[in-house]
Amino acid sequence: MREYLERPGFIAEVIRTDRRKTADIRVEDGAVLIVIPISLPIERVDSLLKTKRTWIKEKIALHREAQPASEKQFVSGEAFSYLGRNYRLKVEEGAFQPVRLLKGRLVVTVPKGKDQPHMIRNALIRWYKRQAEQKLCEKVERYAPIVGVEPADVRIKTFKSRWGSCTAKGILEFNWRIMMAPNRCVDYVVVHELCHLKRHDHSAEFWKEVGKVMTDYERLRTYLKHSEYGVW
């Protein structure tokens, strides 16, 4: 269950879960996230955000300073790739609404102000992460029996220079930015990490396992190696 709270300079995404007894405030990729128990009153959430406002603003500022220069201005008409296809951004002004894919456009509603580009960027990242959570889990479920493995868990992460990883505990971690690549490339990354559950190296035996499932893996691997998805 997700809710959104508009506050000066940022939008806080509120997630209610029965797996927490206390509130947890995070700033991930410059976006504010607060995970709370299901029964916690929204007034209490507002109080927590006020208490942590200075810390939140500092975290957001540090994230912005660390970001490389981007050609994106996050305005209507800009193109953003999803599964290899470009979709035009449509920005509407008003009370915040998360990104929706409507009639071939990525539509987002944000309040007017100097922080609007940052809010749009964060809203887009949140949308890509939600798509990654759904699509990558579906693909893992599809390919795991074919590879002949069973991962311990699937998690969505932010990596600077890799598309995914397989931990020693059998947890598959995927970079949300892979959702910008063509669908076949996403399949390859999933198969690649699943095969690491058999071989934790990049030996000839490992690539043989990948090739059993995807005969065109070399082409896909080369394509991703030279791609620049998600530089914004």
Rank of each mutant, 00 (worst) to 15 (best):
R2H: 10
P8W: 06
F10S: 07
F10M: 07
T22V: 12
D29H: 02
G30F: 02
G30H: 01
V32Q: 01
V35I: 09
P41H: 03
I42H: 03
L48C: 07
I56P: 05
E58Y: 04
R64K: 02
A66S: 13
E78D: 10
F80R: 05
S81M: 14
S81Q: 13
G84A: 11
V91F: 13
K103V: 09
V107P: 00
T109V: 13
G113W: 00
M119R: 07
M119V: 09
Y128W: 12
K129W: 05
K139W: 03
K139N: 04
A144N: 03
A144I: 04
V147K: 03
G148A: 05
D153Y: 03
F159Q: 09
F159P: 04
C166V: 12
A168E: 14
G170A: 13
L172S: 07
N175L: 10
M179V: 15
A181Q: 08
C185Q: 04
D187N: 14
H192F: 14
C195Y: 08
L197E: 12
R199M: 12
F206I: 13
W207G: 05
K208Y: 12
E209L: 15
Y217H: 11
L220D: 04
R221L: 07
Y223W: 09
S227P: 00
E228F: 14
G230V: 10
